[in-house]
Write a protein that binds this DNA or RNA. Sequence first.
DNA 1: GAACGAGTCAACGCCGTGTCGAGAAACGGA
DNA 2: TCCGTTTCTCGACACGGCGTTGACTCGTTC
Lengths: 224, 224
Amino acid sequence: MRAGNLRGMSEGAEQSPVRARGRRAARTSGDDREQAILATAERLLDEKSLGAISVDDLARGAGISRPTFYFYFPSKDAVLLTLLDRVVAEADEAMRTVFEAPAAGPREGWQRALAAYHDTFRSHRALTVAWAEARSTSAAVRSLWAEVFERWVQRCAAAIEAERARGAAPAGVPARNLAVALTSMNERVIYASLSGDGPALAESDVVPVLLQVWLTAVYGRAPE
Amino acid sequence: MRAGNLRGMSEGAEQSPVRARGRRAARTSGDDREQAILATAERLLDEKSLGAISVDDLARGAGISRPTFYFYFPSKDAVLLTLLDRVVAEADEAMRTVFEAPAAGPREGWQRALAAYHDTFRSHRALTVAWAEARSTSAAVRSLWAEVFERWVQRCAAAIEAERARGAAPAGVPARNLAVALTSMNERVIYASLSGDGPALAESDVVPVLLQVWLTAVYGRAPE
DNA sequence: GAACGAGTCAACGCCGTGTCGAGAAACGGA
DNA sequence: TCCGTTTCTCGACACGGCGTTGACTCGTTC
């Protein structure tokens, strides 16, 4: 009895589901179904919100019955989590790239980081919106988000501290607090521009505006 | 047949539910029930999330049966919306007060505005968290939020423009875009600190950090 | 060809929502 | 005082989503 990949219970590593133990992964029709479910989920998310998608929709879309769905995934959230793992990997990779590449100057560097953040989520609009939606209902989704957020905050806080250390940025509130506030801004502004609900910035305005706020917050000074 | 107050359908004004048409509001046991429902909702929200509260919980808490609940409110969301109307009124009042009172200086003024924003939502923690949660499931809730957000943005954008006009703040990205980004930051940072999920600022750090970002973003300059 | 595991699904139980229609309770007039 | 109207109440229902159970098929392996 395949337990599905266990997203949804116990957080943690759990990279690839140990799959293909047998020499040649004999008869993998099961994997096809699993992929079909994931593909269906991604397709349906382009059309409707996560809440409007039922397990039955996913099963039908993958050409199986509802109980069979549960053979592959323990819940709808687990499907989302599996999909999100890809996005998270991509986001982490983008972050690594950006923070390790040498920048021509501060403006260049922060600009690139913000653009990377924006691009990553913009290129997975539907998933990003579903992610935010599921945060209120699933602790696992919430904590996956918290991990990603935390990694960005740490990178940014470290970068701010480095700028302060070399005398390029003035001291002020703790670097970590600054990073938390600014990263929160990124998150909310980008989400609003992707989901299109309420007053939001046009996509082309997002990075310039965020950049201005980041630069002044990190390097600028208040009046008096 | 009382239609309940019609929160949940057709947005709009709809201040007080036209109640008490009869000379003396003869026999208002109905109002008592309605208040009981609202009070129950507020009490339960302190204990559990909106999603974990069923219509049955609200009905039982108010001492009535589930069908009777529907005599007073068309849905659970409508109860929340009614509760939120109070918070919105309070937030608008706080905003009006803050923006109309003369400030000793820029720092004073913005500090007061941020504190007002923070205080308003902090004093209704449970409702604020429920509000955010319901935004993903109810269009009415979403649009109520958008209205409040928009009013703050307009006030702040106007204030920024005034500062620019009198030469105190440099030109840069459009004032409205700046206001949208900064207000988004407020929203997200305050929500995170109230809901306590994921990495968040301590409540006492919220206003100082936000203030630093606002001041530098409005008045400061980027390097080069 | 028996035993096994992977895969499949009809049928079930549970819980939440919202509605319908039959009443009880209070009032306002004739 | 009775009678109609309005207000209010709820038992019973229909529906839909979730997750589980138990039996059944079908290849593979020994």
